[in-house]
């Protein structure tokens, strides 16, 4: 049942030399590719009316997201948010679990009760976000606090949010609590310039979001979120510092969301000028260019990897589409685990 920590966790160890740097980069790139290809498939299923609810793409944020997960280890906690398909897969969520959540399979972890990005397996350290932004920060902090009480050391928690989410009270309360308790928490902020349609200029007034780290008394890191190598290195440092007792680490990545808020959104509000700046660079294309430039891969290899990802996605989707859907007659319609405490009058 548990999430399998797949090949990349085994393959990607903290970079210590040129050889392992290449391996880390290639491994991360493959997860980014699988994330992009799987989300393109979900988007197409959504447009075809095969997915209920919405589909939220991480397009443009894969380099940042994957860099968090490949720097985490088994036993760490990851609490992803809306644009973390790459990080989710790299952390160990199977493509099957992801697809089951989107398609509402009864066999998935969420069993049709919740869908799309609101998924996880909390007991495996893979938290299931609620939609209310900032709410997951204290939850991860509390899990780390619990581990400290239990005498477990060495684990790190990482959670993500956008620049919009930094405006919530929950964000402030959570980051401040983690700072006061000096917890090994990495808070990754993807400043993707828009919270739904609201531009960053209407979201915060400090010069740079990373300035907020000083206010909390925690370390801050800035990174170009479109540059996979930079993201891998920054997250390696931040996760390492948290693991080594350096307290909470705030990572602020600059990038641009290259999709709508959800697939229902045509994102016409995005300033076209912004798309032509360095922020608007597609991190996946940039990573491919770097692979070719460094001669770490040939165009033929990249094409083969993409074809392999597409095959994997198509097979998974086909398999899940044959799975049973949620059945209201087989639901217990009970929100408590203590069945004896169910208020029978209202449920009968």
């Amino acid at each position: 049942m548990g999430i399998g920590f797949g090949m990349v966790q085994a393959m990607v160890t903290p970079a210590t030399g040129a050889g392992s740097l290449k391996e880390t980069y290639l491994g991360a790139y493959r997860w980014m590719l699988l994330a992009r290809v799987s989300e393109e498939k979900y988007a197409s299923l959504y447009r075809g009316g095969k997915i209920h609810g919405s589909v939220f793409l991480g397009k443009g944020q894969e380099a940042l997201s994957v860099s968090i997960a490949v720097n985490l280890r088994k036993g760490d906690i990851f609490s992803p948010l809306i644009r973390d398909q790459a990080g989710r897969l790299a952390f160990g969520e199977s493509l099957l679990d992801s697809t089951r959540a989107y398609l509402g399979s009864r066999l998935g972890a969420m069993r049709g009760r919740d869908g799309n990005i609101h998924r996880g397996r909390p007991r495996d350290g893979y938290f299931a976000m609620i939609s209310h932004l900032g709410a997951m920060i204290p939850a991860v902090a509390g899990a780390l606090l619990a581990r400290r009480m239990k005498g477990m050391t060495g684990a790190v928690g990482a959670t993500t949010i956008g620049e919009g989410g930094t405006s919530t009270g929950a964000f402030h309360e959570g980051v401040n609590l983690a700072a006061v308790e000096q917890l090994p928490l990495v808070i990754v902020i993807a400043n993707n310039q828009y919270a739904y349609s609201t531009p960053a200029s209407k979201q915060f007034a400090c010069g740079d979001l990373v300035d907020k780290a000083a206010g909390y008394g925690i370390a801050g890191h800035s990174v170009d979120g479109t540059d996979l190598a930079a993201c891998l290195e920054t997250l390696r440092k931040a996760v390492g510092a948290a693991r080594d007792g350096g307290g909470p680490q705030m990572v602020v990545a600059s990038l641009l969301r290259l999709a709508g808020h959800g697939e229902h959104d045509d994102f016409r509000y995005v300033d076209p000028e912004l798309r032509r700046t360095a922020l608007g660079r597609d991190c996946l294309e940039a990573a491919e260019a770097a692979l070719l430039e460094k001669r770490w891969a040939t165009p033929k290899e990249i094409a083969a990897w993409r074809a392999e990802a597409a095959r994997q996605v198509d097979e998974t989707v086909a398999a899940v589409q044959r799975e049973p859907l949620p059945n209201p007659d087989e639901e217990d319609w009970c929100a408590l685990s203590s069945k004896r405490l169910v208020d029978g009058f209202t449920t009968e």
Partner: peptide, 25 residues
């Protein structure tokens, strides 16, 4: 070590309790 003073943050207090409960506390 088992009776902890919190920050003045009700949202974070409950959120942290949820995280600790997930950890089996």
């Amino acid at each position: 070590g088992r009776v902890l003073d919190s920050t003045l943050s009700e949202d974070a207090i409950i959120g942290a309790a949820i995280g600790a409960a997930i950890e089996g506390m």
